[in-house]
Amino acid sequence: MATTVEGEFATKDGTKLYTKTWKPENSTAQAVLIFLHGFSDHINAYYDLFPTLSSLPFNIAVYGFDQRGWGRSCKKPADHGHTGPTSLVISDIHDFTLHVANQPEAQGKPLFLMGHSMGGGEALAYLLSTSSDYSDRPTLSGLLLEAPYIELHATAQPSYMKVQAGKLASMLLPNMQLKQKLDAAYMSRSKKVCQDWIDDPLCHDTGTLEGLKGLLERAGHLSLLSHDRTVPGFTTKLPCPVWFSFGTGDRVLSYIAAQQLYNVIDAPNKDKTFKAYPDAYHKLHAEPDGGGEQYAKDVGGWILTHAKAKAEVAQVGQSESSQKAASGS
């Protein structure tokens, strides 16, 4: 069982964003996970993923927030999709990461970051950025990516002219709202999950021209990196181990592009994994016939394995320090 706590946190510019935390009940967390949701999604729409992770046998504390422009962080329809430019999107993520790392229950616990879809692309942009603005990022024990946005699926790619027209319009009318519908039929092989997406008023499918431009630019940078191209301000070296997960049946985003980026990404000690889910759709955590349950177990297992590895390294370091101190006395 898990205990849930709702609240708010203030970003650097004073904007208050909705937060929700899933904590192990009557036990100490073995690790802490920060989660970034996808486009037109929100932190309360991830079904049993977080309750499973925060319960036995995993006991992982999960911290999530509805990003600026999404979910319960919108106070009125006029707020829908108002994410701001990429610099603000990543700044909010940095602020929340620092906020979680400074929580008393997170002290001394292995810290992980996970993103789904748009959130996966954001997590990569955050950790691959060489900007000094994020030089005080907390130490992470791992990055987990669920169907990260590197490229749209081949059948969903916009034309070159449409992209260029959008970029021009975003300079003239950055705050103009625009519906950008994702096909609900490809969210999950579960018809109920697809219908939930349609019926959920918080999945509003609305972006601003500025926000959509930033979304495309972030994906464009990651796509260039996946083709071994140099992108100013970015590296291909992650500061922590990474776990990619993608459904081979995903028709929202490109499985091939994710594989290509995985191939060029460097992680400490080459600790990187690509987990393919045969025929699975976009919401791996909400696939039917036990798929979602297995996905949660895979996520929890990877986190605990790396949490244990970090604890063992720390224990060895403490032992070596004690031996040095004893020999020097």
Rank of each mutant, 00 (worst) to 15 (best):
T97R: 04
K167R: 15
W197D: 10
A101I: 03
G120L: 02
S131K: 05
L152Y: 09
Q195N: 13
Q157H: 10
Q180A: 07
D92Y: 04
Q180K: 11
G119F: 04
L144C: 07
E105L: 12
A101S: 15
A185M: 07
L127V: 04
D200A: 09
L128A: 01
L113C: 10
P104S: 10
Y160S: 11
S170N: 10
M114C: 11
D95K: 02
Q177V: 03
L124Y: 00
T139C: 01
L88D: 08
Y134W: 13
S135D: 13
D200K: 11
Q103M: 14
I90A: 01
G121I: 01
Q164P: 02
K109D: 00
S141L: 00
L178S: 05
Q195W: 07
G166Q: 08
Q103Y: 03
L173T: 14
G119V: 03
A156E: 14
E151H: 07
V163L: 14
M114E: 05
L178R: 11
N175R: 13
C194T: 14
A165N: 13
P138R: 01
G115I: 08
H204S: 07
D92T: 09
V163I: 15
Y186A: 00
S135Y: 00
H94P: 01
L152H: 09
S117M: 00
M118Q: 07
S141T: 09
S159K: 13
M161A: 15
Q157M: 15
Q195K: 15
D196C: 12
E105K: 09
S170F: 05
C203L: 05
D196A: 13
D183G: 04
L127C: 00
L168R: 13
S135A: 15
Y186N: 04
Q107V: 13
P158S: 06
T86L: 14
P138G: 02
M114S: 12
L145H: 08
A165V: 07
C203D: 00
P104C: 11
A156Q: 15
M114A: 12
T97A: 14
V100A: 10
C203Q: 10
E146N: 15
S87I: 09
T155P: 00
D92C: 06
L128G: 00
S159I: 08
Q164A: 14
M187A: 04
L98C: 14
L145G: 07
W197L: 10
P138C: 05
A185F: 01
A185L: 05
S131A: 05
L127I: 06
V89R: 05
G108W: 12
K167C: 06
S87W: 07
